[in-house]
Design a protein around this nucleic acid. Structure first.
Lengths: 205, 205, 205, 205
DNA sequence: CTGTAAGCGAGACGGTACGTCTAGTCTTTTA
DNA sequence: TAAAAGACTAGACGTACCGTCTCGCTTACAG
């Protein structure tokens, strides 16, 4: 029992963390340099100095690699910050953070590529949604509930909370992903105010 | 105009409409059968009986073909219907129409594929947005303005109108395209009511 | 007749003779430079400037290519020359020609490689034997019969003629292919004289 | 010398005879099952349960392994048997033994594979000839001399004896290895009689 | 009877070539 | 002269083995 699960304690070399990192970084770089179509396993192998066979040993496809880089990079970038100040300002800041993440950050480009591929391939869609997106949605729901509680406006049921979240995140995603335009600060501020006002009114009568 | 510019009146056979239709249909079929990755120019040529060279003569890529099928199929599917009844119901119906189009119709699948590819490729993004999406946005803005006027709530400036449109369409697109879930009727109804209430209040209050 | 067989008269480009020649020459060169194991389809493609896909369109494997180069190069190298002089000398010359072909000529190296591969792979063995080797054996049997007829010693049945041929060619092939030594002129002369003497004696005595 | 050089008396375990046997047997089996190309070090390792590293510690390549199996199996299979009876019959029996060995026995398949590889690779050729083939040739020359002495026809010099041996073995090897046909009993009998007659005549007449 | 110097099974690693696929371009014949 | 047929170069795909390496375990001689 002392050894643990047995399989993990087998003899022989372990997975090379160096190679793993090199692959993730090469994939990230190549995605930004050449775009999704120009991102190839061949290219990742060359850039990273990791053999193709090794890449295929640990990842099924280039999309699988991108899912890993996203998991590695995006968790913290979209974390809520509850500073104890004005809850409304906190909410504005969080939505702004989402806009900035998608529009400007490297990991945002990874997410956009994965969202795009999810629209092509149901398997990718499932993996992305059950992995990163589900986790992020949990964080978002919890964050939003915390804000609303401080405003004494938390809705009773989860569905209403989720609907509120979608009214906040939907418009900015729509602009960013469909219309291809970055929402400006005023758009975000008005959006948050409008949604919160409606939420408060619905709760209070 | 009937005389043509010379190039149209040149010798030899004109572009084969038969071939054009065959290509568009084959592309549509293959997209539904095999998905975006399984859609190849090679496959379209085989299925349609049109030679590859002929396809490349008239279209730059498979994406170019899909843009054509979308232009052909989607224009009417998303048209606003102003029946003269309750403007709010009209708006609900229009948003429902968008949901149904994206989630259920074949042309909606084409649009999803193109939106997905637009997230990978800036050129596609530009062509899609300057073409189909810009035209549809015009129709949507006009339709929304018409509804709001009947409610005496039309905003003064275009930016506010556009923001309102995004608050209506954003959440359903977010659910459909990002979360991969089809919004139900209650979600749409609540959304429209909420957004309209806010709009009315901002105008009047 | 004017229509032809239909398939032959189809539209489109024909097989590129340039590419075919380039492949055969590259294969020949690389076999001599790098040996059989170092001969790769990849390498032939690079050296010849012909795309891999084109090579695989016309040949199944590198062995298939070598069979083609052998057919192209070896037919004449092993042809019998009946000059009308001394039949015994003619026979000696022919056996010497075989020795020289295998030991010195480029096409001989191709044949050695194919014989080697035939010992590994029954399919290659069958193709080599039913193709080049069967044709060459026909030529050899006819040549030998012609020589023996001039010596009034042609055996009655084909089996005896074939046995005689094997007694002439067997020892030199054994030395060349198994022992890896080139038989010298004396060995060949003594061999031919010995075999012919036995043949004459069997017929006359 | 008896004390050993120190290296032999070092600490640690000795070479595992179990592993050695398992490798040789696995190689033999796989050669027969899958042919030379299908024989891989990877496969031998799996089949034998011996780690690849251990194989490479003791053998340079799969060919090296086959050379070992040949040495182990073939020495006795081609031994001459001098029973004291008719020397001619003895010679016929020995040639028949060679035919049977190459055409039917497992070790004969190993030898054919090695001969085939020797035609591809000079290093293999050298090792095969300086090892197994040289030893066997010694045995063959001695055996043949013994037979001829009993017939009072032993040639004076080694070259003539070697030439005689090649005239006996050459034709059957030619049929077996080049033409891919097994010589029948009559062919062998006639061959031996013919060659011996010539030898006797050359010595006496 | 303990340390230490292997041998061993397991398997990850960087490579090379495989044979297949599709992209786009180019060439030939038919209508 | 457009369209079909399809050969061509180019290059990525995912797989199979190569030969090398590292790991943790197990001998078995040496001090």
């Amino acid at each position: 029992m002392s050894g643990g699960s047995g399989r993990a304690n087998r003899a022989g070399p372990r997975r090379s963390e160096t190679a793993r990192q090199a692959v993730l970084e090469a994939a990230d770089d190549l995605l930004l340099e050449r775009g999704f179509a120009g991102l190839t396993v061949e290219g990742i192998a060359q850039r990273s100095g990791v053999a193709k066979q090794t890449i295929y040993r640990w990842w099924k496809s280039k999309v699988d690699i991108l899912l890993d880089t996203l998991a590695e990079d995006a968790e913290t970038a979209l974390a809520w910050e509850h500073g104890g100040g004005d809850p409304v300002e906190e909410l504005v800041a969080q939505v702004q953070r989402v806009v900035h993440f998608i529009a400007e950050e490297a990991a945002g480009q990874v997410m956009k590529s994965l969202l795009g591929h999810a629209l092509h391939d149901p398997v990718t869609a499932r993996r992305l949604r059950e992995g990163f997106l589900a986790a992020q949605r949990e964080r978002d729901l919890a964050g939003l509930r915390h804000v609303l509680e401080r405003l004494h406006s938390a809705p009773a049921d989860d569905a209403a909370l989720a609907a509120l979240l979608d009214r906040l995140l939907g418009p900015v995603h729509y602009r960013l992903l469909v219309l291809g335009a970055k929402p400006d600060a005023a758009f975000v501020r008005d959006l948050v105010n409008g949604v919160l006002a409606a939420a408060v009114r619905e709760r209070t009568g």
